[in-house]
Computed example of a mutant assay.
Amino acid sequence: MNQTAGKGKKDILKRQATPYVYLLPTVVLMFILLVIPILMVIRYSFYDNVIINKNPVFVGLQNYKAVLSDPNFLVAIRNTLFFVIVSIIAHLIIGMVFALVLNTRYLGDKTKGIFRVIYALPWMFTASVIAILWRMMLNPNGVINYLITSMNLVNDNISFLASRDIALKAVTLINIWSGYPFYMISILAGLQGISTDLYEASALDGANAVQTYFRITVPQLKPILISLLMLDFVWTLQQFALIWMTTGGGPVNATETISTYIYKQGFTKYQYSMASTGAVILLIVCTIIGIFYVRQQRSGD
């Protein structure tokens, strides 16, 4: 009897341990490639002359004071806020409009299919392709300048990516164009999941299109919209490839963001301590947003 009970306990333990055995390789890989590098960067932020010097000096919070008082970092924060806020708002508006167009009953299935391919096209390109494409179009001799000069909107060609006044707006426009399909596809999926009974009931009550949109559509899409905004905030905050391959943070720091600032500190100036400090500050902001995102997901569940 005792042997049977002992065997039963072993079988139960084995079944309980089996999922963790399958997860172990992934957990080990994440620990090596994610946790350890993060801990190393956090440690570097409290030392001076790391990596280059074999005996780095512990300086505590001095690196944080230096970074937060660096004029270039303050410019990067200002540019990043403009880049992120404008991109998120534009993504939401454009994605919502296109999703509503694709969800309307006034278009046929073939027409919707064609529009879906066209609207989702920017999401299919990599950052390098997008950067090269837009650099060619925004070139002083590119197609954009040809169109606006042909329509007599301007007299001379404009250097969109080389002007301090226009460069940040141009890069933000590129990011908006490349990012709105994610919103469109997600919102469209949410719209198709809303029960038609709600709209039929609102029509019987005499609600117009505007009232239906704000009383039914938006509340039903609220969990999706919050998730999209939080994810997009983190992704846009960390956007690097697009900016680096179009302007490199220039001209004269006009498009310098936190991500390009960190890269320059580490791989141009070889100030790995300052780069680590900037990365930790960015990590803290993303972690706070991530906590809100997880809480929102749990409350939705």
Rank of each mutant, 00 (worst) to 15 (best):
N157M: 04
L198F: 13
A203L: 08
M40F: 15
T212G: 14
I258V: 14
L198W: 11
Q271C: 07
I243K: 01
L121P: 00
L173G: 09
V86E: 00
T126K: 01
D301S: 14
Y183C: 10
P56R: 14
Y263T: 04
V57L: 15
V50N: 15
T26P: 07
D156I: 12
F83L: 07
Q296N: 14
Y270T: 08
K269E: 12
N72W: 07
A90K: 01
S163L: 00
K10W: 05
D205C: 09
V294R: 02
Y44Q: 14
T255M: 01
L24W: 14
V75H: 06
V97D: 02
Y119D: 02
V21A: 15
V280L: 05
K14Y: 03
K10C: 02
I258Y: 04
I88N: 04
V75M: 05
T196K: 14
T268C: 02
K54D: 13
G142I: 03
T4V: 05
L204V: 13
T287H: 03
S259K: 01
F214Y: 15
L74H: 00
I194T: 15
I89F: 09
I94G: 03
V171E: 00
I132P: 01
F115C: 04
T247F: 04
L242Q: 08
Q192W: 09
D11I: 08
I291K: 06
I88P: 04
I262F: 08
I166D: 00
I216E: 12
I166N: 00
L229D: 04
P181D: 05
L121M: 12
L138A: 03
L121W: 04
K112W: 02
T277V: 02
P56E: 13
L147I: 09
N2T: 06
I77M: 08
K14M: 08
N72G: 13
G95R: 02
A201N: 09
T260Y: 07
L74V: 07
N152L: 04
T217R: 11
I281H: 08
V97G: 02
L242I: 11
G250E: 05
P223C: 07
L147T: 04
Q220F: 12
T217G: 12
I12K: 10
V84S: 00
T236A: 10
L225G: 15
M30L: 15
L102P: 04
Q62H: 11
A127M: 11
L133H: 03
A275H: 05
K9P: 00
T104Q: 07
Y272W: 14
W123D: 09
I284S: 06
T80C: 02
D109H: 13
M274Q: 12
S276Q: 09
G278E: 01
V67T: 10
A5T: 00
A207R: 12
L153C: 03
K222F: 14
F31S: 12
F267A: 10
Y106A: 09
D109T: 15
I85S: 07
H91Y: 09
S186I: 11
L168N: 05
M136T: 13
D205V: 10
S276K: 10
L23I: 09
F58I: 13
M30F: 14
